Simulated scan of single mutants.
Amino acid sequence: MNQNLILQFLYDLEQNNCREWFHDHKQQYQAANGIFEELVETLMLELKKSDPTVLLTEPGKLTFKLVRDTRFSNDKSPYLPAFRAHISAKGKLPIPVGYYLMLRPGGRSFLGGGLFADMFRDATAMVRAAIADRGEEWQEILSATSFTERFIVKGNALKKVPYGFDPNHPQAEYLKNKSWYLEYPIADEELSDPQFVQKAVGVYQAMQPFNNFLNQALEQFQMPARS
């Protein structure tokens, strides 16, 4: 797989972010997208070996479009110059949480995991309750060497512990969060390494206890119906 072709296309798109250029370079997009889907499929199959919940499906069903929704943005660029995918028990749905991949040139690529979706208040409440009830288990996951060597828990957070939770709880800082996610940065040159897939799978495997905790907390979550 020539991941450099992906980065080159995305770099060119970033420099020429308009519909005319994109349409004139559709063949380059199709070639880059094909390589990305091949990478996603390889990761999906490898992750299935250590995480049996992973849904095996067509890689194109796990990827996100480059087209941006510019209706409420000051930036009217029509495309996000990044290839993105989410692998989980339900494909690219944000819940259950799984394994996120973003490729973007300029050192902005990363391997992700955890809960990114601040808009799901029920999900946030469920995870907070799980952290409050199972704080020692949560801390054990976050204190493991395989975790601390790679990750820092990120996520938008309140200034204070929300009402109904003990502000002196040992995990009070994490009770403030509205999301809990991980981002492992990937340098551009790492994508051309023949061992990239093996490295990525290793990083994702190190996320699995974190993801498992969140998914156990989210077992009763129902995705809101689309209006």
Rank of each mutant, 00 (worst) to 15 (best):
L43Y: 11
Q198I: 01
S192C: 08
R19C: 01
F64E: 15
E189R: 11
D166M: 12
F110D: 03
P59G: 02
Q222T: 14
N4P: 10
S50W: 02
H86Y: 09
L218Y: 15
I35M: 13
F83L: 15
A125I: 12
E37L: 11
Y11V: 01
P52A: 08
V67T: 15
T63A: 06
V203F: 02
N16P: 12
G135P: 09
Q15Y: 08
T53L: 08
N74K: 11
Q208C: 01
H86N: 09
Q195G: 09
M126I: 08
R226G: 06
G91D: 03
W180Q: 01
N212I: 00
G155W: 08
M102I: 15
A125E: 15
P52Q: 05
G60E: 11
R104H: 11
E149Y: 00
G107S: 09
G113D: 07
N212E: 02
M223P: 04
D166H: 05
A132Y: 02
V67E: 04
S146V: 00
Q208N: 01
P167V: 02
P52F: 02
P105F: 01
N4Q: 13
A89R: 04
I35Y: 13
P167K: 09
A206H: 00
K92W: 06
Q208V: 00
M1Q: 04
R134Q: 14
R150C: 03
D69K: 11
G106L: 05
Y79S: 05
Q15R: 14
D51K: 00
R84E: 14
F36T: 12
N2C: 06
P94D: 05
F151K: 03
G164N: 06
D133E: 15
E183N: 08
G107N: 02
Q28K: 03
G202E: 05
I186Y: 14
L101K: 03
R134V: 06
K48C: 08
K48R: 14
Q3E: 03
K176I: 05
A200I: 13
L158R: 02
P185T: 14
Q222A: 12
S109H: 03
F213E: 05
E149G: 00
R68T: 05
D193E: 06
A157F: 09
Y181N: 14
L111I: 10
F120Q: 08
Y29S: 05
G155T: 09
D193K: 11
T53I: 02
G34T: 03
F36I: 07
L115D: 03
R71I: 03
T124S: 13
L214R: 00
A125V: 12
F221N: 15
K154L: 15
R121E: 10
F165Q: 05
Q30H: 09
K160C: 04
Y204A: 02
P162K: 10
L10E: 02
E219I: 11
S227E: 07
P194E: 05
K159L: 07
M44W: 00
L55R: 05
K160D: 04
Q220G: 15
I35K: 07
E173V: 01
A130Q: 12
E137I: 06
V153P: 01
Y184S: 03
P52Y: 05
G135I: 00
N74G: 15
P167S: 12
P94T: 14
Y204G: 07
W138C: 15
L93Q: 13
T53R: 01
A172D: 07
F165N: 06
T148V: 04
F116G: 00
K90C: 04
Q28N: 10
A123C: 09
F9Y: 11
D188H: 02
